[in-house]
Simulated assay, not measured.
Amino acid sequence: MMLLKIDINKWFSWLNLGIKDPSTASAVEVLLQIAVICLIAFLFTFFLRKGITRVIGGMVRRTKTKWDDIFFEERVFQKIFNLIPPIFIDFAFKIVYGKWQHIELFHRFIVAWILVVAGFVIVAVLDAINRIYDSYPIAKDRPIKVFVQVIKIFVISAIIITIVSEFIGESPRNLLVGLGAFAAVLMLIFKDAILGFVAGVQLLANQMVRIGDWIVMPSNNANGTVLEINLYTVKVQNWDMTITTIPTYQLVSASFTNWRGME
């Protein structure tokens, strides 16, 4: 703790910018200490991540399984290391300024930082799982990208609600109850996601469309092979190599021709 104590008056007197107001000097001292703690945290994380990533990379290349390669390519391990700076800063600052009057507000920002980083880690894990699943033949008939995207939306929404509840001092449960009055607005915001999810489930459950099928949908100028089925759109590569993007729910609400049976 003594190492982080900074004599602001000496610093500014050396710069001929002496601060006479004690409150101003104290505020600047706190800001400088935050800067020093952040610098230490980021430098420590940088060198630790660089060293351990090399070790993990070497181990991944020596294994026969492809799962760890995909996790490494999606930078899951690297993103986990991003949790170190906020945790280190929060712990160090509580030691240095445990009785600071704004410590609780500072802690809330740190919690929000941790939640955002955790969200990126979860999204990277979901992307890796989707890539692993796509490497199996069953993924052609039953892709899971729609469900992965729904989980992403749920995770992001949960993180946003938790961050807001942390700052306003309410529990997430009470915040959700209060949001009940704005259900209509939320339905409007997530209309495409809800319609896409329902349509995606119907398409996959009834096997109406698979990746690799040749479909014709004149209303959307689509006449080619299905490349991708996700929560919002279905991508079709037409016979002339152009790409047509069709909203997922339109494949349920509108008519189209699937030439799979002619193969």
Score class of each variant (00 low, 15 high):
residue 164 V to R: 00
residue 19 I to P: 00
residue 81 F to Y: 11
residue 233 T to A: 10
residue 243 I to E: 02
residue 197 F to Y: 05
residue 177 V to K: 01
residue 178 G to M: 05
residue 172 P to S: 03
residue 253 S to C: 03
residue 134 D to I: 11
residue 220 N to P: 04
residue 70 I to G: 03
residue 223 N to Q: 12
residue 144 I to G: 02
residue 80 I to G: 07
residue 246 I to V: 14
residue 32 L to W: 09
residue 105 L to S: 15
residue 4 L to R: 05
residue 195 L to R: 15
residue 174 N to P: 00
residue 177 V to I: 14
residue 150 V to P: 03
residue 12 F to Q: 00
residue 99 K to G: 03
residue 3 L to K: 08
residue 23 S to Y: 13
residue 9 N to Q: 09
residue 262 M to A: 15
residue 15 L to C: 15
residue 213 D to S: 10
residue 38 C to V: 14
residue 252 V to M: 14
residue 177 V to N: 02
residue 27 A to E: 08
residue 218 P to D: 10
residue 51 G to L: 08
residue 234 V to E: 00
residue 52 I to R: 01
residue 117 V to R: 06
residue 63 T to M: 07
residue 155 V to K: 05
residue 42 F to Q: 10
residue 139 A to R: 04
residue 12 F to W: 08
residue 51 G to R: 04
residue 121 V to G: 02
residue 228 E to P: 06
residue 62 R to S: 15
residue 201 V to T: 09
residue 128 A to G: 05
residue 28 V to W: 01
residue 16 N to W: 05
residue 95 I to P: 00
residue 94 K to Y: 14
residue 164 V to M: 08
residue 30 V to M: 09
residue 253 S to T: 09
residue 10 K to S: 03
residue 154 F to M: 14
residue 64 K to N: 12
residue 119 G to C: 08
residue 259 W to S: 15
residue 205 A to H: 10
residue 53 T to Q: 11
residue 47 F to R: 03
residue 13 S to K: 06
residue 130 N to R: 14
residue 118 A to V: 02
